[in-house]
């Protein structure tokens, strides 16, 4: 039985890997959930066809990062998986149901004709909306801490539900909407692009508002977070995060006005990255906030080592062919039916 525990701090390595998988999920499924959130508001069916075509080859791969995040958490931090899933039972089930309705809509919508297509338009929209909102609620619920009893969840079934988590739900819907809108700007042209650009401008405002609110409320509801961010020298070390975020907001706004096509999407990804880093810094080193650390939740070193070998060998290959698939489907999407 091999183990790398003698020369690697495995829980830190795995925390980094899972954080990366979840980030990739948020960014990748973020833009296609965002497309779903904006879907019914598009000016015409032709626009909707285009939007769908722009994500149809990717959504399945994007969602696989969620399975990797969930499966990876199970493998690397089983205790965290065992505590968090029952704690978030209701929103997890609702998210899964949302993902079902939007996932099948891709194939069913292509096959449907006439009025029944509407059913799948809305199934796609509401599925995406519910999934995004629930993910936002996980976030809001988690940062307020989870009650643990021994090795199990010890809180109530609705601990995750409160005003703050509802707000983070809306925040993530707007965030995904922004990713989706800037994606559509990048992958389409004409009417669809112009409409998406307008959406992106509105959403950018709301994302800025919500990011500011979350940044203000987090230190207020949690003393440790406040000390972390507002004590010297941390304040100065962490200052680049809010400053970069601000710079990105300004640049996206200007890019949208100048009708740049690619940079708004890439910078929206940057915004998410900043928010994500900010959160990770605030929650470190907890994997179940603020009860179980990554060392307490870590799987046996032998288990973390085995999967690490697989990950080191396979993840570059996976990233390689995921990239290849995006390369194959580069360029603008059209509204023409794919069937």
């Amino acid at each position: 039985m091999f183990s790398f525990a003698s020369f690697l701090n495995l829980p830190i390595v795995w925390f980094a890997l899972i954080a990366t998988a979840v980030l990739l999920y948020v960014l990748l499924d973020g833009f296609d959930l965002g497309v779903g959130i904006l879907f019914p508001f598009a000016p015409s069916d032709q626009c909707r066809d285009r939007m769908m075509n722009s994500i149809a080859p990717f959504w399945d791969g994007n969602e696989t990062w969620l399975v990797l995040g969930g499966g990876g958490l199970f493998a690397a931090f089983p205790l965290a998986y065992a505590v968090l899933m029952p704690a978030l039972y209701v929103p997890v089930i609702l998210m899964l149901l949302g993902l079902i309705f939007r996932g099948v809509a891709f194939e069913f919508r292509f096959k449907a004709t006439g009025k029944s297509m509407r059913v799948w338009d809305y199934s796609f929209h509401f599925g995406s909306l519910v999934a995004a909102f629930m993910q936002g609620m996980f976030l809001g619920g988690l940062v307020q801490g989870v009650q643990v009893d021994g090795r199990s969840f010890g809180g109530g079934a609705f601990d995750w539900l409160n005003a703050f988590s509802v707000m983070t739900g809306f925040a993530l819907v707007c965030g995904y909407g922004l990713l989706g809108a800037t994606w559509v700007v990048m992958k389409t042209d004409d009417t669809t692009q112009e409409w998406a650009r307008k959406c992106a401008k509105y959403l950018l405002f709301y994302v800025a508002l919500f990011m500011a609110l979350v940044s203000l409320i987090m230190p207020l509801i949690n003393g440790d977070v406040k000390t972390l961010w507002f004590s010297s020298p941390n304040f100065f070390l962490l200052l680049p995060i809010p400053l970069l975020t601000l710079a990105m907001f300004v640049t996206i706004w200007r890019d949208l006005r100048k009708k740049r096509e690619y940079r708004p999407f890439l910078l929206s990804v940057g915004l998410f990255l900043m928010g994500y880093i900010g959160l990770a810094v605030s929650l470190w080193p907890y994997v179940v906030p603020f009860e179980i650390t990554i060392w307490q939740a870590a799987a046996a070193p032998e288990s973390q080592s085995l999967l690490l070998v697989g990950t080191v060998l396979l993840l570059p290959v996976v990233l390689g062919y995921v990239g290849y698939s995006y390369y194959i489907f580069r360029g603008k999407a059209s509204h023409e039916t794919t069937y």
Partner: peptide
């Protein structure tokens, strides 16, 4: 169990 499922996702 975790690593087996992890390998399924990765491979």
């Amino acid at each position: 169990f975790g690593p087996l499922l992890g390998f399924e996702v990765l491979t």
